[in-house]
Design a protein around this nucleic acid. Structure first.
Lengths: 292, 292
DNA sequence: TTAATTAATAACTATGAGTTATCAAATAGA
DNA sequence: TCTATTTGATAACTCATAGTTATTAATTAA
């Protein structure tokens, strides 16, 4: 079988094409002139095209050689860039991070993280998907997500967890509701009203905490509606179908006809955690974790 | 001094990246497995990045490896094209133009273009391949095609588009069908018949237009067969399995037992466009674009 | 003519790609 | 649990070939 073309041939060709002089090109490449001559000749044989005209005492490029030089310039540049980029991806300063999140994380934590990372590592791309606690854990385990923003007390073996935000709870009532931030003293004041909550499939920890807040005050809430979307819950409250208890940070980002009344003197907090897989192989993740 | 990266390394890397199996990749390359292992290891040392995770029984690409594979695919394609082009230039030709097209473009537009270009630039070579809208866009983006003849409303960023032919639609019926060019007044006259159409994967714009032609006349066509080949569609119509609606220009070039009845007074037109990549590096393309 | 410059040719050397043989680890099957 | 099988890595070798030195042939300049 005949020879294969190699980058070496291209490098040598470029040197001769630029110098238009075999000995000078050979000097520049730190090889001997006969060695260079033979490699160029071999290259011409491989691609089957004469690239240089050796006119007695002068070397010039043929038309095909001129074209090849221009393209190889581009190709070498592209190869260099690709290798640099590959190194960057390996070092995590480039690449993609796949994030899952609960809607309530979109109000404060995630935007802050994105802005911060973007400033330091502008070449990292993000893909974001809102999904439930449970689906996030599953996706992280399957390496389909790099990071998850969840509200969970416990996570399975092999998953790392870190608290990133602690939030108080607020009561959400219609604008025209009798209670105001001044008159609101305890959640017991709405013990007789209907409650609209996030569905427990979406976040069972949230659901359990709401229940315990009420139990602490001696009543069991009458839950009439459940939803997975904050927007929906607010709309239902606005329509007078009941009241809700949600993390206070959800106050930002929505423009609806509801009042937020922070619940005073309760020990329960809405804790947002970030989770990731211990042996995740995405090099970009290691970089991101530094920001958390 | 340390080693230099060579195309050999890239070729080997691609084989392993595709097989994800060192011995199989080695077989494909007709070299021994230890030789391959060593070259891959050397490549990883040269660029300073681990490209494969060897899990003792499974081989997978790292994130950096995935990126490198995608880029090398592009680079190899570009090198191949460059060498072919260099040979053509050497032979006195002005280069090669790779064209993709929908079958219906072969009736009028492309032959005219070829004749015209051939008169002015007799040394340009053409390679022609029939393929779907979608595959053409993909190939143009990957620099595997210089020109595509498509029926598309929109094309991605970085792709240029220009209308080259506007055609009316015709109803295709068997020769012995009751309708003639004189009695045919509206598509509603065949609202009860079965329709044979180009498959929507082949050209969704075409499919949607046919649907809207029928909807405008107040009925939904009963589509019983779909095909990607005009020839097949005509054969099915000839066999009495239904009627079809196709661009009128398809009347030329086939000798079949069907009648074409141009659909009168409808706003829908079959628009054929030519697409090309904005930063295509083929110098011959610039020449061709002048003819469009 | 002579001297200088250039690329090609010839014969050699030595580097390293690719070889065979083998090992170690990880399954899969009994 | 024990064996057989599959897999990639290691080690030691060999041989093809990139690159070497020495020389020639051809051209140009003085």
């Amino acid at each position: 079988m005949s020879y294969q073309i190699e980058l070496r041939h291209f490098t040598y060709f470029m040197a001769v094409a630029e110098e238009l002089h075999f000995r000078k090109a050979a000097d520049r490449l730190f090889i001997s002139q006969p060695g260079l001559s033979r490699q160029i000749k071999q290259m011409e044989e491989i691609i089957g095209v004469v690239l240089f005209v050796r006119n007695k005492r002068k070397v010039t490029l043929t038309a095909a050689g001129v074209y090849l030089k221009k393209e190889l310039d581009y190709i070498f540049n592209h190869i260099d860039f690709t290798i640099r980029q590959t190194r960057l991806i390996d070092q995590g300063s480039n690449g993609e991070i796949r994030i899952g999140f609960l809607g309530s994380a979109m109000q404060t934590v995630i935007p802050e993280l994105l802005v911060m990372v973007n400033k330091e590592l502008p070449n990292i791309q993000f893909s974001l998907e809102e999904m439930s606690n449970h689906l996030q854990v599953e996706a992280v385990e399957k390496d389909q997500l790099d990071l998850g923003f969840v509200r969970l007390a416990r996570v399975p073996e092999g998953i790392q967890k870190k608290t990133v935000h602690t939030d108080s709870f607020s009561l959400v009532v219609p604008l025209e509701h009798r209670l105001t931030s001044k008159t609101f003293k305890s959640i017991a004041q709405v013990s007789e009203e209907h409650f609209i909550l996030f569905s427990s499939d979406y976040s069972s920890l949230y659901y359990d905490k709401i229940m315990s807040i009420c139990e602490d005050k001696g009543f069991t809430p009458k839950v009439t509606h459940k939803s997975v979307h904050a927007q929906t819950i607010f709309k239902l409250v606005e329509s007078g179908l009941g009241v809700a208890i949600v993390p206070t940070s959800l106050q930002q980002g929505f423009d609806l006809g509801v009042k937020f009344l922070e619940i005073p003197k309760i020990p329960q907090k809405a804790i947002l955690s970030v989770i990731w897989k211990k042996d995740n192989r995405n090099p970009a993740l290691q970089q991101i974790l530094k920001f958390l």
